[in-house]
Amino acid sequence: MGDKVFNRIKAVLAEKGKTNNWLAETLDMNRNTVSKWCTNQMQPTVETLFKIAEALDVEARELLVLRKAK
């Protein structure tokens, strides 16, 4: 996946005043996994993306980087 950015999890966490550790604890996930999501080294499954959105009280689409308009 290289340097491409696919999600905004780190940005939304910052907007909500939450940390990676908080998200890991809330979702009962490994902190390293959450860290990889936040740095776009790895992407969560769609199911997990919806769980993240629920935990952060946002729409799932707010966690994704939008494609350029045509």
Score class of each variant (00 low, 15 high):
Ala11Arg: 12
Val12Thr: 13
Val34Arg: 04
Leu13Gln: 09
Arg31Asp: 02
Leu49Asn: 00
Lys70Val: 14
Met1Thr: 01
Phe6Arg: 10
Lys70Met: 11
Lys16Phe: 09
Cys38Trp: 07
Ala60Ser: 11
Asn30Cys: 04
Ala14Arg: 15
Ala60Ile: 06
Met42Ile: 03
Arg61Thr: 07
Glu59Asp: 13
Leu64Cys: 07
Lys10Thr: 07
Asn40Ser: 03
Ala69Cys: 13
Ala53His: 07
Leu13Pro: 10
Ala60Lys: 11
Asn40Trp: 04
Thr19Trp: 14
Asn7Phe: 12
Glu59Gln: 09
Val5Thr: 13
Ala24Thr: 03
Glu47Val: 01
Gln41Cys: 04
Glu59His: 07
Glu59Met: 06
Ile9Arg: 11
Gln43Leu: 08
Asn40Phe: 05
Ala69Tyr: 15
Arg8Trp: 07
Glu54Phe: 08
Asn21Trp: 10
Arg31Tyr: 06
Ala11Ser: 08
Ala53Leu: 04
Glu15His: 10
Lys70Asn: 13
Cys38Ile: 04
Asn7Val: 14
Thr33Gly: 03
Glu62Pro: 07
Asn20Ala: 14
Lys4His: 09
Asn7Tyr: 11
Ala55Asn: 01
Val58Leu: 11
Leu63Pro: 08
Thr48Phe: 03
Val65Trp: 04
Met29Glu: 12
Val58Met: 14
Leu64His: 02
Glu25Met: 12
Ser35Asn: 06
Arg8Ile: 05
Cys38Ala: 06
Ala14Gln: 15
Lys51Val: 00
Thr33His: 00
Met42Gly: 07
Val46Asp: 01
Asp28Leu: 07
Leu27Met: 09
Met1Lys: 07
Ala14Leu: 15
Lys18Ala: 11
Lys36Phe: 03
Leu63Ile: 09
Cys38Val: 00
Ile52His: 03
Val65Asp: 06
Val46Ser: 00
Ala24Ile: 14
Arg31Val: 04
Val58Lys: 10
Ile9Pro: 10
Leu49Val: 00
Leu13His: 08
Lys70Ala: 14
Ile9Trp: 09
Ser35Cys: 06
Trp22Ile: 10
Phe50Lys: 08
Asp57Val: 06
Leu23Phe: 05
Lys68Glu: 15
Gly17Phe: 15
Arg67Ile: 07
Val65Gln: 09
Ile52Tyr: 04
Gly2Phe: 12
Leu64Met: 13
Met42Lys: 08
Ala24Val: 05
Pro44Thr: 04
Trp37His: 05
Leu56Ile: 00
Val5Met: 14
Trp37Ile: 04
Lys51Asn: 02
Asn30Thr: 02
Thr33Tyr: 06
